[in-house]
Design a protein around this nucleic acid. Structure first.
Length: 884
RNA sequence: GGGCAGUUGGCGCAGUUGGUAGCGCACCACAUUGACAUUGUGGGGGUCACAGGUUCAAAUCCUGUACUGCCCACCA
């Protein structure tokens, strides 16, 4: 017997432990299936904590996984975690700093030990948090981007790409984070508009009086200037091109050059060129053969070089900016300073202003990889849902730039490249080489940089499956994966890279479908973040509402268009209510199943209501499978909610109470109840796994040890027309019951007050339906008498009425009626009908409509018009009664 | 500067082949000891942002406008 209320906490823990113990998450539960289904989890950062985005993303994946598992497919959900290079190293460094220790105090080896220890602990935490979501990946296959197998895959991938010329080392401007003291990639740089100033500085001419005034947003970089550029067509400066300027405060000579890049309209039309600290200036310097001069170091401080005034040596770049301004002013070089807002890049991880810095880094040559991606898409090998993300993805591919993959960190995959101490040639190899491939020297030093964390993520779909061993069983069986489920925020970071790597290294797109869902936001539509304090902790929600309640609530909010989801804690209330409803309906069924036999349902002895609920079950089974196969999660949840609450509970269970009291119908009703409940639990299981399993375990005559590996209801063929008659006849009955309730309530009939009811029905089908189901009407509305007639000869006095379909529902009220209320109610109804009638009649009077519209539509309108006319007449009759 | 979304009852949202606007919450009234008050029953509430256009017919297609949000872009 089920407890009176569902207590998620105890049930969830118990059920999850049971699944794990029985190893039901492993694909082997469906070994030898003809079909495979696989998903790789987007690996959470080991440093991270579970947030609502994870809850959503993983719930959706789990729904798909559980569905396919129940369909009998050999189903693999590959779980794991990401080492999250910068993010992790930052946190550990911060922890050390609190103890007054730096990573340099420890040294690389010792520091890595500390990080490993910490990461391992956090990994356990995050995995345990994920388990609270009730998800069913095969934890025994769990991988980590830095484990041995994956590290080997990373080295292998690096070497292969290097050998193909797709990885190279070179000196270019990169986005440098002075706080992380590392390069980061373009997409790790986030731009935001900042209010600042535009300074105009006067650079004196060397051999002539006068000066050239340049405009800059970064005066402190002026010491790194190697030229000033003007537009070749700028008449103001034409005669200055080729002349020499004296760089103020630094006393070095720099040339005036001409370059088309310079916009004569902007600022003063003269641009200072600082190749070491500006990407555009770097490009220009290349064109003009100018050497770069570094003036800001890797920590964002001013270099100690002769070009930089001594008073600025070692100063932070922002402090240096102020001092530079002061110096310029003091020496009369500052012409102007006016407010100016511009885009400034920030480090995605720590928010520090990016310093563009010229440095030697490793890059992936992306163009050839991107071309394969575009081609692969054009051949229909990759599909995005919703489709609009395809364009974003392709646009990015078309405009791709090379990817800086080296990071000046310690935590990560150390780049498998060795420099020869003798000939400085680079040797790249999977296994640590013993000698230089060129001069055979054994004096080799490995590159100290590590790889961008996303480099290993890009290999995830196949590195987790055993690649580079392409004969590995998982790789053979489950690669390429079936679908990737993730948010749009990592399309470039992750999805694109996986496709690039997959196509290049395995010749296959790592998945054929990418399902992109919206992002979770707070109730005001703002992004959830710890700093804003608007986060909702899934574990907290699970504790107070239950895991299944949370899963259901989230699923119901997912739309096909992938809208962002606004969440407040109240959003989870409906899931909790629904879990309660499901629990209690099941409780009722189980309470009434005593003595239920194991016989099949006796089709010949079914009541109309029985047939109706079974037909409805079929319909919703069809709906559920369709929704699942099309990634319509919200509809899936909505439909099942509707079936369980509005059909099964509201109508069938209520009706079953009567059937169970009757010994002649009891046994068969029990069978129907058991069957429908069993099927419903199966349908619901992917969304609400624990509660359904818990209930299912108590079903009599069940076979199999767990619901999660039982068959998902499917239909080989579904013909809605076949079930139409029973649907329509019960719908008529339901509508009449509602009308009776409505009339009685609106007329103020005291509640348990049986009244005589007359149903005047003109449509023969409706009449038949009502005649056949009088018992149903009696059960739901408790009437003194029920009279069915084709035409009412004598209108009862003191009665109220309503019209539904072709049926006039007349309720005799024997004094209970409030005549005024009834009259105004009827008048109002008449008004609405009249409005619809006029509209419809107008349309039917339009010859164009009758000619052009499909016959079926015209037919339908005509029928409706007739119905309306009849209903209006009926109400008019009724009103006349009161007027008399 | 380009691009993409959104604008539907008080709130949050559905509405894919154009054919009488739906759901949850909230609201109002009534009911209630036997699956469930985490309930039941009934009800009120929307000219689908705005302006044009296509069509017999537009929330749904086209054009434009406004507002909101997001992404991308090297203008000092």
């Amino acid at each position: 017997m089920l407890e009176k209320t569902y207590s998620p906490r105890t049930v969830e823990d118990k059920i999850y432990a049971f699944w794990e113990q029985e190893t039901l998450f492993a694909p082997e539960v469906n070994a030898n299936a003809s079909e495979q289904f696989s998903i790789v989890i987007p690996p959470p950062n080991v440093t991270g904590t579970l947030h609502m985005g994870h809850a959503l993303d993983n719930t959706l994946q789990d729904i798909l996984i559980r569905w396919h598992r129940m369909l009998g497919h050999e189903t693999l959900w590959m779980p794991g975690t990401d080492h999250a290079g910068i993010a992790t190293q930052n946190v550990v460094e911060r922890n050390l700093r609190e103890k007054g220790v730096t990573k340099f105090d420890l040294g690389r080896e010792k520091f890595l030990e500390v990080v490993w220890e910490w990461a391992n602990a956090r990994k356990t935490d995050i995995v345990n948090q994920f388990k609270r979501l009730g998800i069913s990946p095969d934890w025994n296959r769990q991988r980590f981007t830095l484990d041995d197998g994956l590290s080997r895959a990373v080295r292998e991938a690096f070497v292969r790409l290097y050998d193909k010329g797709l990885i190279y080392r070179g000196t270019y401007i990169v986005n440098w984070c002075p706080r992380c003291t590392s390069a980061i990639s373009d997409i790790e740089t986030e731009y935001s508009e900042e209010d600042s100033f535009l300074w105009e500085i006067s650079y004196p001419l060397k051999d002539a009086p006068g000066a050239l005034v340049v405009a800059t947003t970064r005066p402190e970089t002026m010491f790194g200037d190697v030229a000033v550029a003007v537009n070749p067509n700028d008449s103001r400066y034409k005669n200055l091109i080729g002349k020499t300027l004296i760089l103020p405060l630094a006393n070095v000579e720099i040339p005036i050059i001409a370059d088309d890049y310079v916009d004569a309209e902007f600022g003063t039309g003269a641009v200072k060129i600082t190749p070491a600290h500006d990407p555009n200036d770097f490009e220009m310097a290349l064109r003009h053969n100018l050497e770069a001069e570094w003036v800001i170091d890797t920590k964002g401080n001013m270099e100690t070089v002769s070009r930089v005034p001594e008073s600025l040596h070692g100063l932070d770049r922002f402090e240096a900016r102020k001092q530079t301004e002061a110096l310029l002013e003091q020496h009369g070089f500052l012409v102007k300073k006016e407010p100016h807002s511009h885009n400034v890049g920030h480090c995605q991880r720590c928010g520090t202003s990016i310093e563009p810095l010229l440095s030697k880094q490793w890059f992936v040559r992306c163009k050839p990889l991107a071309e394969k991606c575009i081609q692969s898409h054009d051949q229909g090998e990759l599909k995005f849902i919703p489709e609009r993300w395809t364009k974003i993805y392709l646009d990015w591919m078309h405009n791709i730039r090379d990817w800086c993959i080296s990071r000046q960190l310690w935590w990560g995959h150390q780049i498998p490249a060795w420099y020869c101490d003798d000939c400085s040639e680079i040797t790249v190899a999977v296994e640590t080489p013993t000698q230089c491939h060129k001069c055979k020297s054994s004096k080799l030093t490995q590159e100290t940089d590590v790889l961008d964390t996303w480099f290993s993520s890009g290999l995830w779909p196949f590195s987790t499956m055993g690649w580079p061993d392409t004969s590995a069983p998982d790789f053979q069986k489950f690669y390429p994966t079936s679908v990737l489920v993730t948010g749009f925020d990592i399309i470039f970071f992750w999805v694109a890279r996986m496709v690039m790597d997959g196509l290049e290294l395995t010749d296959k797109s790592p998945f054929h479908t990418v399902y992109i869902h919206g992002l979770i936001r707070d109730e005001k539509g703002q992004k959830m973040s710890k700093s804003k304090g608007n986060t909702i902790d899934p574990v907290e929600i699970i504790d107070s509402y239950g895991c299944d309640a949370m899963r259901f609530s989230l699923t119901r909010l997912v739309t096909y268009g992938g809208q962002d989801i606004k969440l407040s804690k109240d959003s989870f209330e409906q899931g909790k209510l629904f879990a309660n409803k499901l629990w209690n309906a099941s409780r009722f069924v189980l309470m009434n199943l005593e003595g239920v036999d194991n016989q099949p349902i006796d089709e010949s002895a079914l009541s109309n209501m029985d047939r109706w609920i079974l037909a409805s079950l079929k319909h919703y089974t069809h709906q559920a499978n369709t929704a699942l196969s099309e990634f319509r999660f919200g509809e899936l949840a909505d439909d099942l909610y509707e079936f369980i609450w509005n059909l099964f509970c509201d109508w069938y269970v209520e009706y079953a109470k009567k059937q169970l009291r009757d010994e002649t119908t009891k046994a068969n009703t029990q069978r129907v109840l058991l069957y429908v409940l069993d099927q419903t639990l199966r349908l619901m299981h992917p969304i609400m796994p624990h509660i359904t399993e818990e209930i299912w375990q108590m079903l009599p005559h069940r076979t199999g040890k767990s619901l999660m590996i039982s068959a998902y209801p499917t239909l080989t063929a579904y013909d809605p027309e076949k079930n139409r008659p029973v649907h329509e006849s019960i719908l008529t009955v339901i509508n009449v019951i509602r009308a009776i309730r409505n009339v009685r309530q609106a007329s103020g009939v005291p509640h348990p007050h049986p009244t005589p009811v007359i149903l005047e029905v003109t449509d023969p089908d409706e009449m038949a339906a009502l005649e056949a189901n009088q018992d149903v009407i009696h059960h739901f509305v408790k009437l003194e008498s029920l009279t069915l007639t084709e035409a009412l000869t004598e209108k009862p006095a003191n009665s109220a009425a309503d019209v539904v379909g072709s049926c006039r529902v007349v309720v005799s009220l024997a004094g209970a009626i409030d005549v005024d209320a009834e009259v105004s109610r009827q008048k109002k109804k008449l008004e609405t009908l009249q409005k619809e009638y006029d509209q419809l009649a107008g349309r039917l009077n339009n010859p164009s409509f009758v000619e052009r519209a499909p016959a079926a539509v015209v037919e339908k309108d005509r029928a409706r018009l007739d119905e309306l006319k009849q209903q209006m007449t009926t109400i008019e009759d009724q009103l006349a009664q009161f007027v008399r």
